[in-house]
């Protein structure tokens, strides 16, 4: 692999131009420049612009009017905001179920019978398809009168439940749809992790009589810690980013009961109810603040790992 035949610059001493002497100091910034510039324009600066816009009353077209913290004050009295916030908490908590569920599925599938590779990839399917499609699939699954789940509930209890039209169940229904691809994702992470578990440790523990839950808890899980970390990260981010399913399955309804912050923000800023960019930005800032708590945690852990290397 060593490309010995690399074109050597030249046999004699290279001319000592400025570039030659400083290239190792300048090169990283040259390589970084295009990526950093794009990232600064489209990701970093919009964060600060949004914070700024959240202090204005603005319909997106006309003059911005400075109103200070009034948008935030309004949020404090906005029932729809609290509904969305509460639903976000539900999402976060229930979405976490995908971590143990994905682990169980990975353990179930970590065998080598014929065709296992194909089975594993079929199990992974839900993650590959768009959340819009997942949303439509589950809307059909839940559909009143003829939906599979509706009929199943009707058969069991005598009366069907129109999950997406009932404000008591709607958020749970959407979260269940979200869990479907998320469990598949976590499963793949754990399958890879299980592949790399040290066999000698497992065998040693087996000789000591460990099996089942005790083996899983004391021997396997500690070795799966990196997979668990990634699974938790992607699940938290996924839960707080939930937008597609809400938008496709219920459009926030019935009566706004399935809104989450990300959806409510979009609705305020861009929907037919009027363009309230400032108010929307304020909601986004709150969501960002919540996300930042988690992001800082992740970054702090990754930073520590980097330092230890």
């Amino acid at each position: 692999m060593t490309r010995a035949a690399l074109p050597a610059a030249s046999a004699e001493m290279p001319p000592r131009s400025r570039w030659r002497t400083h290239q190792r100091r300048l090169a990283p910034w040259l390589f970084l420049a295009p990526g950093l510039a794009m990232f600064a324009v489209y990701v970093v600066s919009p964060i600060f612009q949004s914070m700024w816009i959240s202090l204005y009353d603005w319909d997106g077209l006309g003059e911005k009017v400075w109103i200070g913290a009034a948008n935030y004050a309004e949020l404090m009295d906005d029932d729809a905001f609290y509904t969305s916030l509460w639903n976000n908490v539900l999402w976060l908590v229930l979405y976490m179920l995908s971590v143990p569920a994905g682990l169980m599925m990975a353990i179930f599938l970590n065998q080598t019978i014929r065709g296992m590779r194909l089975y594993k990839s079929m199990f992974f399917f839900p993650f590959v398809i768009s959340q819009v499609v997942v949303g439509l699939i589950f809307s059909w699954f839940y559909a009143p009168d003829f939906g599979l789940l509706y009929q199943l509930i009707e058969w069991l209890t005598g009366t069907g439940v129109a999950i997406l039209a009932d404000d008591r169940y709607v958020t749970y229904g959407i979260i269940a749809a979200g869990l479907w691809p998320q469990i598949a994702y976590v499963m793949i992470l754990y399958l890879t992790g299980l592949n790399n578990v040290a066999t000698d440790q497992i065998e040693a523990a087996r000789l000591d009589g460990a099996k089942g839950w005790r083996m899983l808890w004391h021997v396997v899980l500690p070795q799966l810690r990196p997979a668990t970390f990634i699974a938790v990260v992607v699940t938290v981010i996924g839960a707080l980013r939930s937008f597609d399913l809400v938008s496709v399955m219920t459009d926030g309804g019935p009566y706004g009961s399935s809104r989450v912050l990300s959806f409510y923000m979009y609705e305020q800023a861009l929907s037919e109810y009027g363009y309230r960019m400032g108010y929307g930005a304020a909601i986004a800032v709150v969501l960002f603040a919540i996300m930042m708590i988690f992001i800082s945690g992740f970054i702090w852990k990754m930073w520590r790992d980097e330092r230890e290397r």
């Binding site: 990232f39 979009y266 988690f294």
Partner: peptide, 23 residues
């Protein structure tokens, strides 16, 4: 710089929405 890229990758889309749409 590295962690700025990593953190940026996790932010909610909504905090970028209004400015990116404007741009």
């Amino acid at each position: 710089v590295f962690f700025m890229f990593v953190a940026g990758n996790f932010v909610p889309f909504q905090i970028l929405m209004v400015p990116v749409r404007d741009l």
